Simulated scan of single mutants.
Amino acid sequence: MVKVIASNVRKGNVLEHDGGLYVVLKADSFRPGKGTPTTTVEMRRISDGVKTVITVKTGEGLERAFVEEVSHNYLYNEGDNYIFINNENYDQVAVKAAMIGDDVVWLQENAECALLMFDGNPVSITLPPRVTMTIMATEPVVKGQTASSSYKPATMENGARVLVPPHIEVGTRIVINTEDSSYVERAKD
Rank of each mutant, 00 (worst) to 15 (best):
M1L: 04
V2H: 05
V4E: 01
S7K: 13
S7Y: 15
V9F: 15
V9A: 04
V9C: 08
K11T: 03
K11H: 05
L15M: 02
D18I: 11
G20D: 12
G20M: 10
Y22I: 13
L25D: 07
K26N: 15
A27T: 11
A27D: 11
P32H: 11
G33K: 10
G35L: 12
T36V: 15
T36A: 09
P37N: 15
T40K: 07
R45P: 07
D48H: 09
D48S: 08
G49F: 13
T52Q: 10
V53M: 09
I54R: 00
T55V: 02
T58M: 10
T58I: 14
L62Y: 13
E63D: 15
A65Q: 05
V67N: 09
E69C: 00
N73C: 04
L75Y: 00
I83E: 08
F84A: 05
I85T: 07
N87V: 14
Y90H: 04
Q92A: 05
V93C: 13
V93T: 15
K96G: 04
M99D: 00
M99K: 07
M99T: 03
I100F: 03
I100D: 01
D102L: 08
V105K: 00
Q108D: 08
Q108S: 07
N110S: 03
A111H: 01
A111W: 00
A114L: 03
L116R: 08
F118Q: 03
F118D: 02
N121L: 11
N121G: 02
P122C: 00
P122I: 00
S124A: 14
P128C: 02
V131I: 09
T132H: 01
M133H: 11
I135A: 03
A137F: 06
A137I: 13
A137P: 02
P140T: 10
P140N: 04
Q145S: 05
A147D: 13
S148K: 14
S148L: 06
S150F: 10
Y151D: 01
K152E: 01
A154M: 15
T155A: 06
M156P: 08
N158I: 13
R161V: 09
R161N: 01
R161H: 06
P165N: 03
P165C: 03
I168S: 03
I168H: 10
E169H: 07
T172F: 15
V175T: 11
N177H: 04
E179I: 04
D180R: 00
E185I: 06
K188F: 15
D189M: 11
